[in-house]
Amino acid sequence: MPLENVTIGRVCLHEVHRRPEEGPQLVPTFGTGLLELDQEAESAFRSRVIAAFKSTAQCMEVDIREFGLGSALVTGVELIKLRDTQFVNHSRLFAEALATAQISRQIPGGLMVVFDGTLGNPATPFFGLMKAELHEGFIKTANLQARFVNDLFLSPKTKLYKIGIFISDGVDPRPDLPEGWRAVVYDSAMSAAHRDAAATYFYSNFLGLNIPENAARQVKKFFEETKAFIKAQDIPEKDKVDLYNGLYAYLKLDRGNTIQTSRFAKTYMGDDLGDDYIAHMKKRKFPAGAIAKDISELAGVLRWRKFKFPRAITLSGPPDAIRDLVAVDSVNGDDGQSWTRITIRAQLQSQE
């Protein structure tokens, strides 16, 4: 989901260390003041956050599971109301919570970046929690020399960070949390075939968030609304077949574990049709962000691809076989009617 009209307020850094081989988790190294950013640095930080939550990024709207005392939500709601000096001290609670959530030695240390600001129009408050891993690189010095450093973070090409953002609806006070708040997370690992432990420790153990339980229904709605859009288009039948094949491939064959309207449009549609499709899905109130790809409610539907013709004639087969072997074209018949020509790039094996 894209973030619009973003302003960054206060930023504070703490460092969380990798869990040692033996003994308890190390106490974080706490920052002592707000991060001082000049205009260029603030613009760069803001751009990193916005870029992560563009509709093509690995972001997802999630459910707020924990909203009691000590939860990330309650700690953050209290945080954004505090003065600057209190902000720094209160933000330490997030570093401590992240250190506790990192239960495995395989999880690297990194910086706990706590920040707040406003977004949207009209502007409403938000607070953000970022885990930024440190990485190596070279810094250019005078006379075209270079210095090696191992404490770089937030480099645009090395997206070693995860972000959770809690967004208010602007109505205050809200006595019944989590009412009035929603959450989105960014993690590049969400595009992998399987979620790794790192993603789980961050959005679940640390932030207290859940992947929506209705993901299966959302995926079914994605399938049905996309089919309806394709069917309604005034384009050649061959192009419709290609789009249907793309839809089946995207849901069944693509190894990613999320779906997203913008990603489908970019992969299978041209710019104009893709813009129309995204507008169609937005009108149908389908989320712009990534959705967990739970195809359990479509298991039977995705097993076979079918073409139906008059007088009970049906051509069917697995979606990948249809995509690879079958070509469908609309042609003008001898009787002046539109006919369908089917080409199967394989020999007939049997008939009954």
Results as ranks from 00 to 15, higher is better:
P212C: 08
M281N: 04
L160N: 03
I295R: 01
N245H: 09
A288V: 01
P122W: 14
A142S: 12
L154A: 03
Q86N: 10
K252V: 01
F153L: 02
T56G: 14
R46G: 10
D275Q: 15
M190N: 06
F127G: 07
A99H: 10
A249C: 01
M281L: 13
S330F: 13
D172C: 05
E40S: 12
G110P: 04
E213F: 07
S338Y: 00
D239C: 08
Y268F: 13
D324T: 10
Y268H: 11
F223D: 07
M281F: 08
I165M: 03
S191G: 12
T226K: 02
I165E: 07
D169M: 11
F148R: 12
F30Y: 14
R305N: 04
E213N: 11
L129V: 05
N89G: 08
K285N: 14
Q145P: 08
Y248F: 13
R263S: 04
D254P: 02
G336K: 13
R182K: 11
K283Y: 15
L79G: 05
L144T: 04
A215V: 05
K306W: 06
P125I: 08
R10T: 06
E96V: 05
E36K: 11
A346V: 11
N245R: 15
F206Q: 00
S338V: 15
D242P: 02
G120R: 10
A197T: 06
D275F: 15
M112L: 04
M60V: 11
L152P: 02
L93I: 10
A52I: 06
A228Q: 01
L325Y: 15
F264P: 00
H90S: 03
Q106S: 06
E4N: 12
H194C: 04
N214C: 09
N205I: 11
S55F: 12
F153C: 09
E133S: 04
A41P: 13
I230Q: 04
F138A: 02
E66K: 14
G23W: 15
P318W: 12
Q58P: 00
V113N: 09
L37H: 05
R83K: 13
Q349M: 13
I230W: 14
Y201G: 06
S204A: 10
C12P: 01
L253C: 05
I322K: 05
T258Q: 09
